[in-house]
Amino acid sequence: MAHEVRGVIAPGKNEPVRVETILVPDPGPGEALVRVRTCGVCHTDLHYRQGGINDEFPFLLGHEAAGVVESVGEGVTDVEPGDFVVLNWRAVCGQCRACLRGRPQYCFATHNAKQPMTLTDGTPLSPALGIGAFAELTLVASGQCTKVDPEASPAAAGLLGCGVMAGIGAALNTGQVGRGDSVAVIGCGGVGGAAIMGARLAGAAKVIAVDIDDRKLSIAEGLGATHTVRSGENDPVAAIRELTGGFGADVVIEAVGRPETYEQAFYARDLAGTVVLVGVPTPEMRIDLPLLDVFGRGGALKSSWYGDCLPSRDFPMLIDLYRQGRLDLDAFVTETIALDQVEQAFDRMHEGDVLRSVVVL
């Protein structure tokens, strides 16, 4: 049986999104039907709408979601109806070479639901990141459901599904920030703000926030930044070096995804320091660095994909810290909105007015 629900569709490249009636099938083997309670408006959804991911329109947008499992398909044992879950876009296979080597966070064969969700005329929808959660119900692979403490606020918990996890994981997992380290974060939107919070959680002694927007720098201070640098008025490399005794930061997290800010991150780190790229570049972007500098400065240049997280390990742990008052996920929820306000939320995101707008269903 197909369920008729409302969902937010991106019909074509750069076209405004609209709310449509969609058909969501009952779960098949290995699948779960989830009633969505909240879903954050992430920049990745805007990338889909702009055609920056691929051209497989129409898209069913939304992926930073929390909800309750409605029903499960044959063979599903990891979740059951009534479970409160955060959705993830990395359902690990358990069988690929990464999984078999004990590195499931790098699984090379992650998967999604096999059955399509469709428009009422039968047109198949491409769910954003295999989730499609700007909808009252969505169909996912059961491995995309991570059970967490049901007492957690859905609006806050759902943000772990993408941007907040990407930022926290960039600090904790990829950058491996340690106690007493100096950390610089370039770009202080939702992902960069989460990286700041992750660095403080790891015990960093100095966390330097870099952005061109005073509003974001003010928010960054509230999330744990010890120092701020307004890069439109100052050379961020020189400023970071000055704040770290002339040496540069132990870890620099680039949360913008542009060649010029990546170059800043490269030269703002200490010798043998680490650069973490968590900002998402576009396909045409290139970086040109002297190879001798890459060799001579040592250290590590890393990319952080989804914060190198393992949802089954990281989501419950972070929710526990949130419930203990040690991780302020609520700070990322700027506003709550209705399903038909997603297009306006994209405008506010573009203007830098919000960390996250969260759709409440």
Rank of each mutant, 00 (worst) to 15 (best):
T174M: 08
V8T: 06
G189S: 02
V333I: 04
I131L: 15
V333S: 06
G298R: 15
G325H: 09
G73L: 03
Y106M: 14
R35Q: 12
A65S: 15
G178L: 11
V275R: 09
R258L: 10
E351V: 01
L125F: 13
T334S: 13
M197Q: 06
G40P: 13
E15G: 02
G163T: 13
P116D: 05
L23Y: 12
R200S: 05
G167P: 08
V177E: 05
T44W: 10
N54Y: 00
D288R: 14
F266S: 04
P236D: 01
I287R: 10
R348N: 07
A194G: 04
R49A: 12
G187W: 01
I168W: 10
F315H: 09
P81I: 02
R215C: 00
V256A: 00
S218T: 06
Q50A: 06
A141C: 10
L139S: 06
E70R: 11
V354R: 07
V276R: 04
L310G: 07
R215Q: 02
A338V: 12
D213S: 00
V36F: 14
V358A: 10
E70W: 08
D149H: 07
Q144I: 03
A156P: 10
Q115W: 10
P150W: 13
L119G: 02
D314C: 07
L355C: 01
L329S: 03
Q344E: 15
P104T: 01
P154R: 11
G246F: 08
G248I: 12
H227G: 00
K13E: 06
T120E: 12
A238R: 12
I196R: 00
G161W: 15
K114V: 15
G94L: 12
L301I: 15
P311C: 11
A170V: 04
G307Y: 11
P25G: 03
A2R: 12
G132M: 08
T261P: 01
I53L: 04
K147T: 07
E260H: 08
G130L: 10
A255R: 02
Y48Q: 03
L292Q: 15
I319G: 04
S142E: 13
L329Q: 04
A98P: 12
V229S: 00
D78T: 02
T226P: 10
L243H: 02
G130V: 04
G30S: 05
G161L: 14
L318W: 14
L318T: 00
I240F: 02
F59A: 02
P154Y: 14
H227C: 01
I196T: 02
D308E: 13
P58Q: 03
A113H: 09
S153E: 13
G73I: 10
G62W: 11
L318Y: 15
D250W: 09
A205M: 13
M165W: 13
M165E: 14
P104V: 02
T120G: 03
G325C: 06
T77M: 03
L292D: 15
S304E: 09
L137V: 00
G40F: 15
T118K: 05
I337S: 08
K114H: 13
P25M: 04
V237A: 02
L129Q: 14
C93K: 10
V76K: 04
